[in-house]
Nucleic acid binder design. Structure first.
Length: 298
DNA sequence: CCCCAGTCCTGCGGGC
DNA sequence: TGCCCGCAGGACTGGG
């Protein structure tokens, strides 16, 4: 499930092949059973993108953004099973969109000629936004800040906005944008914070640990090119597995020994209809007494 | 505003 | 062996 590290890996994987290239053609693959969400229609997309140069490839929360010299930008949301590829896909029948790239002018024989959006379940979306629409998406206030490099002060301000459990709050993209279900459990484990703690009741010390754990987990996951789970869906731009799944400490490890304390058994629970994993030894709830005023101020 | 349940979708695995 | 059902969850929608 592409979250921040997986989408960042996609961006880094396609960037050297795509940045600076001219889009010769955009096509919706006829092999799809049901077309994915495409805004506007493929005809308008193809007309507006043809001949444009890709000036920048970047990540916006869990989206891939291809900025064009026309001012328009492709915004690709992989959601559950979407992939950006510059090589042969896992299966031909789930190819959704093809960007045909014009050959580079100066001697590049090994240049890729196509960029693909592949999506098995078809929940992903591809949109072509004009500058105003892109600005609204990036700065319209619906997306919270990127979690990497976020200051403790910003963390505090964002978490103060909700009393929901911290695990659920981390999934709210308007608070912090980029963390998904897998990394929320991993981050809270490293931060030693119980997933049921109300977000607005975290102590200063816990928020400081959350900030450090977020950077550590996400940056390490990027280094390992994301997590390819048992279903094998997630792949990098070259259709290769990530390897951060080997470093997971709690996710999908229910009933197994905690790798951190080697004492507790990992618990699986359900919060907001999603699986949560935590170690009851490393991540304790404080005694049911609410924190004293002194504790809250510190 | 805040929060939750339902929805989209496909492949896989458990149970019978 | 085969079929059915539940489950996986990112983002959005509708309703309380």
């Amino acid at each position: 499930m592409p979250e921040l590290p997986e989408v960042e890996t996609m961006v880094r994987g396609i960037r050297p092949h795509v940045e600076g290239r001219i889009i010769a053609e955009v096509r919706a693959c006829p092999c799809s059973r049901r077309p994915i969400t495409l805004t506007p229609g493929i005809r308008d997309i193809a007309r507006r993108a043809r001949g444009a140069r890709v000036t920048e490839v970047r990540r916006l929360a869990k989206r891939v953004v291809l900025t064009l010299d026309s001012g328009d930008a492709f915004v690709i949301e992989p959601r559950m099973t979407g992939l950006m590829l510059v090589t042969d896909p896992p299966s031909v029948e789930h190819l959704r969109i093809k960007w045909q790239l014009a050959p580079r002018s100066a001697g590049g024989e090994q240049n890729v000629e196509q960029l693909w959006f592949w999506d098995r379940r078809g929940l992903g979306t591809v949109r072509l936004l004009d500058p105003a629409e892109l600005d609204q998406l990036a700065n319209g206030g619906k997306l919270g800040p990127d979690p990497i490099g976020l200051s403790v002060e910003t963390w505090s301000r964002q978490l103060a906005r909700t009393a929901r459990p911290i695990k659920v709050a981390l999934l709210d993209q308007s608070l912090v944008a980029g963390i998904g279900n897998l990394y929320a459990s991993e981050i809270l484990h490293v931060a030693r914070i119980h997933p049921e703690r109300p977000a607005n009741q975290l102590t200063r010390a816990e928020i400081a640990r959350l900030q450090l754990a977020t950077d550590e987990v996400l940056l390490t996951a990027i280094k390992y090119e994301g997590s390819t789970l048992g279903d094998g869906t997630y792949r990098n731009a070259l259709n290769q597995n990530g390897s951060y799944q080997n470093a997971h400490r709690v996710y999908a490890r229910a009933d197994e020994r905690c790798l951190t304390c080697r004492r507790g058994a990992v618990l699986r629970s359900v919060q907001a209809q999603r699986s949560t994993f935590h170690c009851p030894v490393c991540q304790r709830l404080p005694r049911s007494r609410p924190p004293s005023p002194q504790e809250k101020q510190r």
